[in-house]
Write a protein that binds this DNA or RNA. Structure first.
Lengths: 143, 143
DNA sequence: CTAGGTGCAAAAGGTTTGCGGTTAA
DNA sequence: TTAACCGCAAACCTTTTGCACCTAG
């Protein structure tokens, strides 16, 4: 997965990046900007609510479409927790997610530098990994 | 997560285990038996289809309810792949899942003995993990 | 100019729920 | 005996789709 965002912005929306190969529209910029400014892990519905503040006419279907386009082009990530709604994450580095059962918060969990997945798992012979999702659920004991 | 299945069966269905604290019914036995005999990773709908062969009157809602009860009592696991339907897995050992994009098959990926999650991830301070889900998607290059 | 995106509303698909009748312990 | 479960159908919720209009490049 590669970050396709460049700074060669020609887009008229403020703070609007160009994503290679993705036609940028006002709605896509708004959705992307929502994700970048809050930097938590909102659901599509939450992105919709936030986007409406700046762009009252945007529709939920468009938010879904924009999110999908951004995910396909590697600008953001989609994160799935069990059966909950998908959440979207602007952190493009390799990481997992810890879901705190008490606060409900989702915390990015970085992969240790130099650590290899094959040290933890007995991967099948010849496996080529396109996508890795590590999700943890639990509590934080702050004693 | 602990395996609550005992062999002290009092249930009238053949090959019917007792799960501590879970009232065993014909439907729950059938659902459990479907999972144990195929040992792949069926969706609720697939479990329903298979269960109907032995028990034509069972309903899909009951299959969902039985699966939920079995999951809650630690008799089987629920596995979520991206936005697909949940799948159910009778393998109770700690493991991840590899989703082969070519065959569509789901392969259990054992955790290496002695390997620790904290060797791979920078876990948050004081994190107590109740649930870990590792899902991989990719291809198997058989050269 | 036009391929592709948008907004809307409706459909789809998986899962859950409410209710009257049934059953395991 | 009775709390809990079953079957059914309807509800629910997230996500996708079809279509007429619009817009970025």
């Amino acid at each position: 997965m590669k970050n396709n965002i460049t700074e060669s912005s020609k887009c008229n929306a403020e703070d609007c990046p160009t994503v290679d190969g993705l036609r940028m529209t006002r709605q896509r910029s708004e959705v992307y900007s929502v994700l970048m400014s809050y930097r938590d892990h909102p659901t599509a519905g939450e992105v919709f609510e936030r986007a409406k503040e700046n762009m009252p006419t945007i529709s939920l279907a468009t938010v879904y479409n924009c999110l999908e386009a951004l995910v396909q082009h590697g600008a953001v990530r989609q994160v799935n927790f069990e059966r909950e709604s998908s959440r979207y994450c602007p952190n493009l580095t390799e990481h997992g997610h810890f879901h705190d059962e008490e606060s409900g918060k989702i915390i990015d969990v970085p992969l240790k530098k130099g650590a290899k997945l094959s040290d933890l798992l007995d991967l099948p012979e010849g496996a080529e990994i396109d996508n890795l999702e590590i999700t943890l659920r639990g509590k934080i004991s702050n004693n």
